[in-house]
Amino acid sequence: MTNQWPVTDLDAVQRMRVLASALPGGGFARLHIDAPVERVWAYIADLERSIPELIGFIRRFELLGDGTAVARGPVRNRGRFDVELRDGWCVMQDRFVVGGFAAAADGDGTLLAVCGAVRTPGLRRIVPLVLGRRTLVGVLERVRRATA
C-alpha cells in the first residue's frame, strides 16, 4: 500500500546544497550553463584536466586509481585527496579542504553547483580568499567558458 504514496528525491545540486550547509565555513554557488549536462559533466569528470584549470591553488591533479588523487600546488606543496566521483556528483577531500561539484539537467542546459570548505578550524580565515562565494562563482564561470 505504501508504494501508492508520493515520494520525492533530491537532484545532485540540491544534495550538494545540503552537504555545503553541513561544512563549517563552507561556500556554495550554482550557475545555469547553456550546455547539455552530458557535456558539462564530461568536462568536470575529467578531473586531471578540469581541476588544475578550475582551482587556482592546484597545478596538477593525478588520479591514482584507488579512489584517491594527489594534488600539487604552485609551491610544490602536495595533498592526497579522497575522490568520490559518480554521474553528476564529485566530492574531494584531503586533511585541510573539502570541495565538490554537482550537476543536474536544467531544461536544455545544466545547473552546476560547486562547494568548498576548509576542514581545519585554524585555516578558516583564508576561506574568503580561496573558497569564498566570488571565487566559487568564478570557478563556475570558467566551466561555462570551457563547455561553451
Binding site: P6, V7, T8, D9, L10, R17, S21
Partner: peptide, 24 residues
C-alpha cells in the same frame, strides 16, 4: 523524501532539502 512528499506534495523537494539542511 518519503516523509516529506506526502505532506508537502509539489513542494516535496524543497521540504526535503530544508529538512536535510536542518539535520546536517
Amino acid at each position: 523524501g518519503r516523509l516529506c512528499a506526502p505532506i508537502a506534495l509539489a513542494d516535496g523537494p524543497d521540504a526535503a532539502q530544508e529538512a536535510l539542511i536542518a539535520v546536517f
